[in-house]
Simulated assay, not measured.
Amino acid sequence: MVETGLEAFRFSISWSRLTPNGRGSVNPKGLQFYKNFILELVSHGIEPHVTLYHYDHPQQLEDEYGGWLNRRIIKDFTAYADVCFREFGNHVKFWTTINEANIFTVGGYDGGNTPHGRCSTCLSGNSSTEPYIVAHNLLLDHASASRLYRQKYKDTQGGSVGFSIFAIGFRPSTNSKDDEMAIQRFKDFFFGWMLGPLTYGDYPEGMKRILGTRLPVFTKKESEQVKGSSDFVGVIHYLAASISNAQSQPSLPGNSAFFTDIGASLTCRNYNPQ
């Protein structure tokens, strides 16, 4: 990294490695590993950017209450974040709570082709409801960890807490009004799903209209906590896509309720789903 001239490096801390049971005692070897690594970066002038969650959490939390499908994870994740802020915060100034929150939610609980492998046609899962439940809990979880940092650590450590999404460059397949409307639905579902609550405290009206009772509702207090809870938004961008209006199943792997809800098909460029 030094020879390449890197000035910053983003990496993830494994929740399972640091607190294997999900809460309680910290694994001293895991703690020391990350301390050594962070100090090595800093000593060579490389700014560490830490992601707290990159799709793995302790198995005990999955077995005990279903992981992200249960709001109980908010308390446990906030406690895990507290350990990280306390132990590494003197050298880490940039924290991302969740990596690619939207694609993690869709892939893990709608298509089933990424962790945690749940979908309507998988061994377990419900693609029509679980992605929206998980996303809701992710947002509340982020807000909780961000609030903790601002109340307990920001004044002394001076860092920032942000959120990460996966971004696609959209363009309509044709100049038709239907394809233009499909683009807006894609933006609502793919970007506004996460950025709407973080910016305005609520989901886009288009999502609420299409999903109805399948979309969880923020209480007034939750809305106030989520709104403005990100100091920055991390955008991860790999590809572009053409969007077409569609009422049938889109041309994507798996039985995806999420893309059916959008009512559009997506054709990626420079992308092989295999």
Rank of each mutant, 00 (worst) to 15 (best):
L6N: 04
F33S: 05
A143K: 14
G66N: 09
N102I: 09
G228Q: 07
S251A: 13
D202V: 03
D202R: 14
Y238E: 07
N175Q: 10
R214H: 09
L198G: 11
L61W: 06
S127D: 09
V235A: 11
F77Y: 14
R269E: 14
V92M: 06
H136S: 05
R209D: 13
H136R: 11
T213H: 12
D188T: 07
N272A: 13
N36Q: 09
L39Q: 14
H237Q: 13
V106I: 15
L195P: 07
H49P: 00
Y132F: 15
R72K: 15
I243C: 02
M1Y: 04
S230P: 09
D141A: 15
W15P: 07
G66R: 08
D178H: 13
G159N: 11
M207N: 08
T213F: 01
S242I: 00
R10P: 03
V134H: 11
D110I: 10
V161S: 11
K220P: 00
T174C: 09
F191Q: 06
V92I: 10
G22C: 06
Y271K: 02
L52D: 09
V233T: 06
A167R: 09
A143W: 07
R118E: 02
E205C: 05
L69K: 15
L41S: 01
L239R: 14
R209H: 13
S244M: 02
A101E: 06
T174Q: 10
T97E: 03
V106G: 03
L239A: 13
G234L: 10
D76M: 05
S173H: 12
F166R: 03
S127K: 14
N126M: 03
R214L: 07
I13S: 09
P273V: 06
S146W: 02
P204T: 07
M194E: 10
A240C: 12
G192M: 02
L123Q: 13
S128N: 13
A240F: 03
I103V: 15
G107V: 06
A135L: 09
F163V: 03
T4I: 08
Q225T: 02
S120Y: 04
A246T: 12
C268P: 11
E100S: 07
I165F: 09
S120H: 07
S43Q: 14
T260R: 15
T19K: 10
T260F: 00
L252A: 04
T97A: 05
G89N: 13
H136N: 08
V26F: 02
P115G: 01
F33G: 07
P253F: 02
K208E: 09
E224F: 01
Y34R: 04
G125F: 04
F170S: 14
S251M: 10
Q249H: 13
L198R: 12
Y109K: 04
S251T: 14
T96N: 10
N245G: 00
A241I: 08
S43N: 15
A167W: 12
Q151K: 15
D231E: 05
L31Q: 09
L148Q: 12
